[in-house]
């Protein structure tokens, strides 16, 4: 379907209570702060958030957590020097945590986006992460069965889009954006600039428009 260019609040209006929302960014690099602000204003709650970290400082994802909208965090590295919002909720028993090794987080979303039913992964063999899980020895090496992580919505930040929804990123702010874009029913990309069709070098496009449903320009 044709990618729409809309304002942030319109972009997130179909997010429902209980949805799983994939949120891009590694710390603040690539975090779609204005889309998260719109989600807070929109008001959906009881959310499962999939993101590498569990919020930094008091803005972006941390603000969504502080607003009490998140039931569960799925992430690899919740605790950081500036993750006081998550830390407080977790210690008070007000939020669930599913801890996923960072590469598994990425690959499980990649699998969802690529139509893979499950995959065997060597990460975490012999650790508490693998306890009670199905394992298999393949060519003499042990692997753990991992299932896809699919989102109802992905909120990502890219650098420049064309009006079709092709995306290019900037430096390490690329991080989870391209994978999350493939793994959600609706992908919403916040970009710094939207250019006309034909202005992006096709060789430089990282996320093709087929994965992008809505564009929000935030200069």
């Amino acid at each position: 379907m044709r990618t729409q260019t809309v304002d942030a609040l319109t972009a997130v209006k179909e997010v429902r209570d209980g949805d799983t929302v994939l949120v891009g960014g590694f710390g603040m690099a690539g975090m779609p702060v204005e889309l998260i602000d719109a989600l807070i204003e929109h008001g959906a709650g009881d959310l499962t958030i999939v993101s590498n970290n569990a919020g930094n400082g008091d803005t972006g994802l941390a603000a969504l957590l502080a607003a009490g909208r998140v039931r569960k965090m799925v992430c690899s590295f919740p605790r950081q020097a500036d993750s006081w919002v998550f830390d407080g909720l977790y210690r008070a028993g007000k939020i669930e945590l599913e801890l996923v090794p960072q590469g598994n987080l990425a690959e499980r979303m990649r699998a969802a986006g690529a139509g893979i039913g499950a995959f065997y992964c060597p990460t975490g063999v012999g650790t508490p992460i693998a306890e009670g899980r199905e394992t298999r020895v393949i060519d003499g090496r042990e692997y753990v069965l991992e299932y896809p992580i699919r989102g109802d919505v992905a909120l990502i930040r890219a650098h420049v889009a064309d009006r079709l929804g092709n995306l290019v990123y900037r430096k390490t702010a690329r991080n989870f954006g391209p994978v999350m874009a493939t793994a959600a029913t609706v992908t919403i990309a916040q970009v710094s600039r939207i250019v006309e069709v034909g202005e992006l070098d096709p060789e430089s496009v990282v996320t093709p428009s087929i994965y992008v449903n809505r564009l929000v320009e935030v200069a």
Binding site: P78, Q102, T123, G124
Partner: peptide, 12 residues
């Protein structure tokens, strides 16, 4: 508060 990041993937 446990945080694993990429350590398990690197180890493997």
């Amino acid at each position: 508060i446990p945080a694993v990041g990429g350590a398990m993937d690197l180890a493997a």
